[in-house]
């Protein structure tokens, strides 16, 4: 079954209460942040807090991600040493501009995995692209390491670097979003959208989620537990979509049994992309917890 990454809940790394309760809201992933949400004087304490939490607490199957500080800061190397031993599922690299940024982190992770006697390659990587250079290098970043499972866009830094600011429609990040989702798809990894910081603007948030789903993103970073359920709802296929997908699969099965070539459903041609989309709808529905009669979806 396809791993869902519709929501990645952002958890400030030095907030003990939020770290303790991060999993109870049932986002698909939780991301403990050691970077921008932690003040410079608390980096050491936050790192120890996340290390101890990951070594001790049971996050009940929720995927754990840690956003480390960049290697261009005094904190990045210690973050890697600690997190390799804490064993989150994924390390998220901030402000990735090139494949070299990913490879540098990978070299350090591998060194620490060997020193700690851990299996090399266990921890996966994802990269946040937050500047114009990273956007232009998105595909080489996505393919820089076998550990890479996803690309994310960090819009706040990106728009600042682009000498603009965010707007409700997001036209200023449309190119970056399109480039990142295309690069991720070409590399066969996940694409995750940026945060929506105006937590009280529910309609604006829903519009943005519909937009990024339409663009092809797998999900979104969220900053409040309140944002989780609406994203999951939008990403869960509708009954109409599921019914159509099941019919597509049924007719293609019949066509294959009869050895037919091109077939039609409701007067429209059913070809491979339609079948692929139908299979994805069913996979997504199953992953979202929708139960099927096994006879129906074969």
């Amino acid at each position: 079954m396809e791993k869902l990454r519709r929501t990645m809940l952002y958890v400030p790394g030095n907030n003990a209460g939020m770290v303790k309760d991060a999993h109870i809201y049932r986002s698909d992933s939780v991301m403990f942040d050691l970077e921008d949400s932690v003040s410079l004087s608390e980096k050491d304490s936050a790192r120890l807090l996340i290390f101890n939490a990951l070594k001790t607490l049971d996050y009940e199957g929720i995927e754990t991600v840690v956003r480390i500080n960049g290697l261009d800061t005094p904190f990045g190397v210690d973050d890697i040493k600690a997190m390799v031993r804490a064993q989150p599922d994924i390390i998220r690299i901030p402000k990735a501009d090139s494949a070299d940024d990913i490879k540098a982190v990978e070299v350090l992770i591998e060194k620490e995995e060997k020193l700690a006697g851990l299996k090399v390659g266990t921890i996966k990587l994802m990269a946040a692209i937050e500047g114009p250079l990273g956007v232009l290098n998105a595909y080489s970043i996505a393919t820089a390491s076998k550990r890479m499972i996803g690309l994310a866009i960090g819009a706040e830094d990106y728009v600042t670097n682009m000498k603009t600011k965010r707007s409700p429609g997001g036209v200023e990040i449309l190119f970056a979003r399109s480039q990142i989702v295309t690069a991720a798809r070409a590399a066969g990894i996940y694409a995750l959208d940026t945060v929506y910081s105006d937590v009280n603007n529910e309609e604006g948030f829903l519009e943005e989620v519909r937009l990024i789903k339409q663009l092809g993103f797998d999900g979104k970073s969220v900053i409040s537990p309140r944002q989780i359920a609406p994203v999951h709802k939008i990403y869960t296929p509708s009954q109409k979509d599921i019914d159509f997908a099941l019919r597509v699969i049924e007719v293609i099965k019949e066509a294959n049994e009869k050895g037919s070539g091109v077939i039609s459903l409701d007067g429209k041609m059913v070809d491979k992309p339609i079948v692929d989309r139908a299979e994805r709808v069913i996979a997504m529905a199953k992953a979202s917890g929708i139960q099927f009669d096994e006879e129906d979806d074969k």
């Binding site: 303790k20 050491d44 304490s45 120890l48 807090l49 101890n52 939490a53 001790t56 607490l57």
Partner: peptide
């Protein structure tokens, strides 16, 4: 605080 939080804060304070 949970025990793991106490350990983390104690270790940070001690290193400092």
């Amino acid at each position: 605080a949970l025990d793991c939080t106490i350990c983390a804060r104690l270790e940070a304070a001690t290193y400092r």
